[in-house]
């Protein structure tokens, strides 16, 4: 389905239907955590969520119409931001806690057992409190998450791709998701001026998500280099994309 033929309402409905299931860790280690056991839990969960994230992206109207090269570049750029914004949404009603999964709920202070992770937990908790303050609505969250994916790569995507129309399609998609977010905010009944403020406030939050993701990526790479945690499968591929880029 090409996004330009969908109304903003239809676009949002498709985003609701595209939502991935809530993932469980299943074999949560006993407390207290050690550095290795916490990192193992977090990476196992991330790997499971990543598989569902690919399925979610494919259900965003127009995403699979982009060339495969662009689909890969977008996902490898934004995967940790998407995981983090999902974590924030799950944690929004639970101040001071990070709801990684229903069976992996961490208090801020539990971050002390992994070197360097407390700073990232604090960034995530701060961004989550801001979303709580703004009373982020579910449909707004869905639009922001899709926007993170589609806006994740600032470099010309089609270099190396065989489909010159792909970047035009991506621009159309970004316009469609912007229209959808504007429509969701307008439907809330806020006065026009406050609608613009809300849009700006929500979009400004995205730079904090990007910042937390960059810090998280750096942290995960260092944990892997120090052999604190082995990284396998899809997570390894996604992490390697960032290692290669950094070099």
């Amino acid at each position: 389905i090409f996004p330009s033929v969908l109304s903003p309402e239809q676009f949002v409905t498709t985003l609701i239907e595209a939502e991935p299931p809530n993932v469980l860790l299943m074999n949560r280690p006993n407390k207290p955590f050690t550095e290795a056991s916490m990192m193992m839990s977090l990476t196992k969960l991330a790997d499971k969520e990543l598989v569902h994230m690919i399925g979610w992206a494919k259900k965003i109207p127009g995403f699979v119409e982009l060339c495969l090269y662009d689909q890969v570049r977008l996902l490898e750029s934004c995967w940790l931001e998407i995981l983090m914004v999902g974590l924030m949404w799950r944690s929004i009603e639970h101040p001071g806690k990070l709801i990684f999964a229903a069976d992996l709920i961490l208090d801020r202070d539990e971050g002390k057992c992994v070197e360097g992770i407390l700073e990232i937990f604090d960034m995530l908790l701060a961004a989550t409190s801001r979303l709580r303050e703004l009373k982020l609505q579910h449909k707004e969250y869905l639009c922001l998450k899709a926007m993170i994916l589609l806006n994740s790569n600032m470099f010309p995507l089609t270099m190396g791709s065989d489909d010159p129309d792909s970047s035009v399609k991506l621009r159309h998609l970004l316009n469609a998701i912007t229209d959808a977010l504007v429509w969701v905010i307008a439907k809330s009944g806020l006065p026009y001026r406050q609608q613009s403020n809300r849009l700006a406030n929500l979009l400004m939050l995205l730079s904090h998500v990007r910042h937390a993701s960059n810090k998280g990526m750096e942290h995960l790479l260092s944990m892997r280099c120090k052999n604190v945690v082995p990284v396998y499968d899809l997570l390894l591929e996604m992490l390697n994309a960032h290692t290669l880029r950094d070099h």
């Binding site: 991935p20 598989v51 569902h52 690919i54 399925g55 494919k58 699979v64 495969l68 090269y69 689909q71 890969v72 570049r73 996902l75 490898e76 190396g160 499968d233 899809l234 591929e237 996604m238 390697n240 994309a241 290669l244």
Partner: peptide, 23 residues
């Protein structure tokens, strides 16, 4: 390495069925 080489699993997931099809 090329994008295809470094993203074998991602390519497979993008080109094949839904995540529920993949064990």
């Amino acid at each position: 390495s090329s994008l295809t080489e470094r993203h074998k699993i991602l390519h497979r997931l993008l080109q094949e069925g839904s995540p529920s099809d993949i064990s």
